[in-house]
Simulated assay, not measured.
Amino acid sequence: MPAHIETGPPGLDLDRLRDRLARHGLAEGPLAAEVIHGGKSNLTYLVRDGGRRFVVRRPPLGHVLATAHDMGREYRVMTALRDTGVPVPRTYHLCEDPDVVGAPFYVMEYVEGGQPPATPAIEADLVDVLARLHDVDPAAVGLADFGRPEGFLERQVKRWKRQLDASRSRDLPDIDHLFARLAGAVPKTQRHAIVHGDFKLGNTLIAGGQVRAVLDWEMSTLGDPLTDLALFLLYGDFAALDIAEPGEAGEHMPSAGLAGRYARGTGLDISRLGWYVALACFKLAVISEGIHFRYTQGLTVGDGFDEIGEHVAPLVTHGLQALESLED
């Protein structure tokens, strides 16, 4: 290994990172790093100092929207959940100084595991983990001020509309219709809880058929837990939408069975779940459009970005169908 490394992967200056981590006793000697591929938002790197491995997370290289890609939010919620029944990596350091690597970043534990194809047993474990998350008392883990749960759903609909408007680069008329229908039929929240914001198999590490770590907490907040459930179920339906990614393939438990398991574990009423599924479709459509915009501007790192824009239309259609099912 060279005695001195001047640069690393895109977005990670290893000299500056080494100096920062050395001051906090987290690394010794020169660093080597590589991008951990799979995510389409924040950048994740596996970093080695010769004897240890750890993970560094930072925002994307450009077109960073307000309220998105919040490193402090991810770091805080994982730190708070460390001693609960929710499996999360241990957190080591948060750097909010953008001069070190060009953006805020944090360092966390490297957890052994992977993302195998879905199985009914794995999905059942995921739903149980989700129910445990939603059972955590935010105040008991220091997260009472982590969000503003009152009016959460109304703000979610408006927020994703703002994100859409900030990423518009082509005509998508049906997405505005989906927004209007969501805004006109917001249900009442039954329980305020810590929500992950992007809960899916692809944002976990699995080993031995069990969930070892839940990752990617950038969208976490206090809000309506059924938003997490609906998004998780939507990811399971991706194969039917012909937009499946690694981690969504495999043998899936029927959505109704997963929803019923969650309802039994939490005691929540899921009769209006179709609205939440439609919101999940709107959210993923907006995120996909934002990634598509960054791709067209040459601001993405890694493979698979060229097809993300094709996900938007089927997500919008599925969302409208979910709303129509509530009217049957």
Rank of each mutant, 00 (worst) to 15 (best):
A185Y: 00
L231C: 04
G38V: 09
M78P: 08
K40C: 04
G202L: 06
T91F: 10
G8I: 11
R272T: 13
T296M: 10
H292D: 13
A313W: 05
K158N: 09
D15N: 10
I175E: 04
S271V: 10
P117T: 03
G85T: 09
G62C: 08
F293T: 12
R23I: 07
V107K: 09
G8F: 05
L234K: 06
V77H: 03
G114C: 11
R82V: 06
L268W: 05
P10R: 07
P173I: 06
G113S: 08
P225G: 04
G257L: 12
V316D: 10
D174S: 12
P10M: 07
Q210D: 11
Q321L: 12
H24F: 15
F146S: 06
A230V: 05
G11N: 05
L234D: 06
P117V: 07
R53K: 13
P10A: 12
Y92T: 00
A68F: 11
D306E: 15
P9K: 12
R212T: 08
G51M: 03
V100H: 06
V86R: 03
A259N: 05
L320G: 09
L201I: 05
G62K: 13
E28I: 03
H318C: 08
V77D: 04
N42R: 04
P9L: 09
G290W: 04
G39S: 07
K161M: 13
P104F: 00
L126R: 02
G102M: 10
L273N: 07
E327Y: 01
R132V: 12
A121M: 01
E324C: 03
V86H: 02
P2W: 11
V214E: 02
A118Q: 12
L133S: 01
T266K: 01
L126Y: 06
E327V: 11
D145T: 15
T44N: 08
L17Q: 03
E248F: 15
G304F: 14
D176V: 02
Q210T: 15
A263G: 05
Q210N: 01
P104K: 00
G209H: 07
E28S: 14
S271T: 15
K158V: 08
T296S: 15
L201T: 09
P138M: 01
V214D: 01
E327Q: 11
M219L: 15
R82M: 03
G50A: 04
M1R: 12
H177S: 10
D70S: 13
L315P: 05
